[in-house]
Design a protein around this nucleic acid. Structure first.
Lengths: 193, 193
DNA sequence: ACCTGAACACCGTTCAAGT
DNA sequence: ACCTGAACACCGTTCAAGT
């Protein structure tokens, strides 16, 4: 038999296998945890073999992040296309962001690791896209050009800031009820009627 | 002569000298740049001597951050005590934050390095204090207890998010005029009339 | 009291050699 | 085409020895 059963059996690896393992590590333990030697141990090979697939640790990080970037693109905004009314769409977006914590895990990990050179450009691109989407949505609710741009920026900043605060307040974590009230406050304050 | 002139002359160092040098490095190059060996080179000693002052690199980081924390405490809120009217005080705070970039340099560096264990608790404490200050101020403008808490959270999240976005948009940096318009939008949207 | 110098561990990177 | 094993550089940490 060439590649039959067994747990310890390890097929030879591809660059994609490394990138996927790296992305898992980012979600679990953050960007700093992506290290060649530990990853190699986890994959059951020696660290030397890594350099057949990637020229550097940074290249691996980039590959992992590009993988995430293309997935999140559809994930976040795909579901919103169904909602026609712009005000309702914005409210739906707030609800989505508030209740789907899984999709923010990697994003949060990246926000905490902006001092890594590979992370910045990815977050830049993602932020740019989201800002434009928000601006367009606010525009559609009837806000003027500048007003829509500013409101979008404020909204996105609130999102980023919330992730920061939320993950940091393990200690003084908000109870569910207060959290819902906060989301409601955000919606009332930021979405035009 | 015991300790006369000369550039290459290096008095013996104290723990405080190391902490200050570390804080400078954080402001200039970020948390990741705080490394024992390069710091030792910069200070003109060998890295071995570092361990007479601190038990670990992390302890140095903590010392540097505590130093910053106690300074920023007075810096940010000290000047606001003069303004009696709570609405005017909030507007003044917005203006201060918008135009004093220097005081945010370290804070931004820390936000980008939240994956370092020593950074989290410092940011936690600072955020907690600022949130409480904002809550109290909104309370004084006449908002109800919950409304004030939520508004404070939104405001602070907007601040944190803005730092993130601002530093990241080197590419698409806002021109001065648009920036002022944005601050104005924030003030109108967030400060009760 | 503060510093040197040599040592070790750990991780990134290279590369000749294996299959 | 993919992997091993040994090597080297760099940084964190320890410690005996110096002043």
């Amino acid at each position: 038999m060439k590649t039959s059963a067994g747990k310890q059996e390890r097929a030879r690896l591809s660059a994609d296998d490394w990138a996927e393992a790296a992305l898992d590590l980012i979600a679990e333990q953050g960007v700093a945890a992506v290290a060649v030697e530990p990853l190699a141990r986890r994959l059951g090979v020696t660290k030397g073999s890594f350099y057949w697939h990637f020229p550097s640790r940074d290249a691996l990080l980039q590959a992992a992040l590009e993988r995430w970037e293309s997935v999140e693109q559809q994930d976040v905004f795909g579901k919103l296309e169904a909602v026609a009314d712009p005000r309702a769409r914005l409210r739906a977006l707030f609800q989505m962001v508030a209740h789907e914590f899984k999709s923010h895990v990697v994003y949060s990990a990246l926000l905490k690791a902006l001092d890594h050179a590979a992370v910045q450009p990815v977050i830049d691109r993602v932020s740019q896209r989201r800002l434009e989407y928000l601006t367009a949505s606010f525009r559609q609710t009837g806000l003027g050009r500048d007003e829509a741009r500013h409101r979008a920026r404020l909204t996105y900043a609130a999102y980023v800031g919330f992730l920061q605060l939320n993950l940091q307040l393990h200690t003084a974590r908000m109870p569910q009820e207060e959290f819902e009230a906060y989301v409601d406050h955000l919606t009332r304050t930021l979405v035009p009627e």
